[in-house]
Design a protein around this nucleic acid. Sequence first.
RNA 1: GGAGAGAUGGCCGAGUGGUCGAAGGCGCACGCCUGGAAAGUGUGUAGGCGGGGAACCGUCUCGAGGGUUCGAAUCCCUCUCUCUCCGCCA
Length: 494
Amino acid sequence: MFDIKWIRANAEAFDAAVSRRKNVSVRSSDLLAIDDRRREIIVRLNEAQEKRNALSKQIGQAKAQKDEAKAQELMAEVARLKDFIPTGEAEERAVEAELRAALSVIPNLALDDVPQGDDENDNVEYFGANGTAETAARQRPAKPSFAFAPKEHYEIGVAEKDMDFEVAAKLSGSRFVVLKGQIARLERAIGQFMLDLHTTEHGYLEVQPPLLVRDDALFGTGQLPKFKEDLFRASINDLDRFWNEYQRAREEDLEVMRQMEPKPAGEIINARSLTRQREWMQKLNDGEFATNYWLIPTAEVPLTNLVRESILAEEELPLRFAALTPCFRSEAGSAGRDTRGMLRQHQFDKVEMVSITTAETSIDEHERMLACAETVLQRLGLHYRVMMLCTGDMGFGARKTYDLEVWLPGQDTYREISSVSVCGDFQARRMEARYRPSGEKQAPRYVHTLNGSGTAVGRCLIAVLENYQQEDGSVLIPEALQPYMGGLTSIGGK
RNA sequence: GGAGAGAUGGCCGAGUGGUCGAAGGCGCACGCCUGGAAAGUGUGUAGGCGGGGAACCGUCUCGAGGGUUCGAAUCCCUCUCUCUCCGCCA
């Protein structure tokens, strides 16, 4: 979310930068017009409040001196000027909500080095801060070669038995999978390996967060209010409260109609009553009477919100959190995409990294976090490339994003396995997360937040299966995972 | 699920309609004292918004949001969270 004062001071820069993002038509002039109205009402309201407060204080003094006559006189004076205050307050609230609503749907601005583009075809391969294709190739595992035609993960011998989509469909429908036996263990091993790597070697604090969160947390990281349809909601309606308030509103409504002159016809009363019913059904459906929980689409949400509504000391930064959690996504906009196999699921495990930094260090932290994610694939011997996302392909809250794309020989293509983003103070503003710079009497500043997968466990499982498959349908276990597999060097052999 | 109690500054804690953004203590910062330190002592110590070049001024915030009142930390309503007892439960 943006600071309207910043937009006012940098209107041209804002317009230029915001126009780089896809599907955004907002202009600084629209926002500043709302802000002008907001400031105008604040000035008028403050003046009225100042007068009221001064006179009220005098009333208190007069009463303390038992000067009842003077008190009455002052009270009459306040009553006259007071008319404006309630409407002024309501107006201020309304215009502030309007400004907030307008600001909260504007995506973050891309950094200058982010390439301009419409979709994933305009992403640019990235070789590191000072890297080249050659230096990157030396660091990264080579593409494997096969003496046979490599299969997709769900066709490989070991997976045919233990990766069960049919039974998952019976339990939960499409886009779910049941893993069994050594495949299930392999997935667990991958998750443990990755989390251990980040906590023991990369300095991340292991966190076990809630998987159900409130609206506020999702607003903080930017999934709400704009991306409801990507989330699963778990709500419990309070029907008693709904019913009580509905009945009360209904009574008031009837009373109004009883007072009407002449009395409205029965059809009119019925029509109006139906309209009301519909409104209240909508309220119920919108979750107004529910305890609203959302299933996290990524552990970025709980991990980043760990610092919400707090003022940290600069010395505490950077904070680095990592978690291994299930993630839940409705995949509403992906009908028909990746329907075979377990590439795109409603539920999947992921190891997530989150860093909380100062404004000065977030760009360096971004490169560091990318390296942490890359280490996972390097240790597992998986070939990959890094893409810098173009403006059209970046997420809502990001200023710059790197995607790690792992090589899937069965699909003969690279597929996203990790996404590492720097968000600047965008999320921090939404969740009021600040730090106090060290030194004397410094005002609090917003922290910078970063998040990255390190990496998606389900997709990593696919990559291990496809890259280490053998002609007989067995799969070799990468050395780094063997300790987590009880020393096994392969699974699915005869 | 039932019954009850509560939420005040970085922390503890006083305050039940008037000069209270808030006593007192702890902590922290700076100074005095000291050869140096401790002890002692003095001063200062929230955030947002608006106005102003600035000093500063105004306004809002005592869990959150509404309301009553000339005036609310204090009264009323809703919500969130915490604690105690009972019940249920992995």
